[in-house]
């Protein structure tokens, strides 16, 4: 009578181990991630957050991302589920690193930070950059050449 119980227990253990391995293989560890991880997390329903400015976001952003500039993040994240996977990115990784630290300090458990930011993203982009670039704005000059520097404090 004991053997069937033992076999059942063994099968249960094997199934559990396989399930744990499968789950761990499917979800990267929180922290810095690459493009492939972002794609996978996005397909699994992770919240993808672009912490750049609205102007940068309008220019181009990763498909499926929502724009929450870094300075607005504390208030926006207040009502989010702390167990929800959140993928952060910015231009090159500086602001998203600050954002990741912020969310971790707020108790978020699954915070991912796209290494290198959108600058190294090779996937699909959304936004109006291509249309806008096709027709550059007319800028008045005083007869001398002009250099624009576009920056943020972050």
């Amino acid at each position: 009578m004991k053997r069937p119980h033992l076999i059942g227990l063994a099968i249960g253990v094997v199934v559990l181990v396989v399930a744990v391995i499968a789950l761990s293989a499917g979800a990267p560890a929180p922290g810095l991630i690459g493009n492939g991880d972002l794609t996978r997390l996005g397909s699994e329903g992770a919240r993808i957050v672009d912490v750049r400015t609205a102007a940068e976001f309008a220019g181009a952003h990763i498909e499926g991302a929502e724009n929450i500039p870094l300075r607005d993040l504390p208030q926006a994240a207040e009502g989010w589920d702390r167990a929800e996977p959140i993928v952060l990115y910015c231009a090159v990784g500086d602001r998203s690193s600050s954002a990741a630290e912020l969310l971790q300090s707020m108790g978020f458990e699954r915070v991912y930070d796209l290494s290198g930011g959108i600058a190294q993203w090779e996937g699909a982009l959304a936004g109006g950059a291509q249309t806008a670039a096709a027709e550059p704005p007319q800028v008045a000059t005083s007869g001398t050449p002009v250099m624009y520097e576009f920056y943020t404090d972050w």
């Binding site: 400015t53 090159v92 959108i118 670039a133 704005p137 000059t141 576009f150």
Partner: peptide, 15 residues
């Protein structure tokens, strides 16, 4: 900046 197609900052546009 959006009109120039700027996606990242800092960026420098020369006219």
């Amino acid at each position: 900046a959006s009109g120039f197609g700027i996606q990242y900052v800092p960026s420098f546009v020369f006219l």
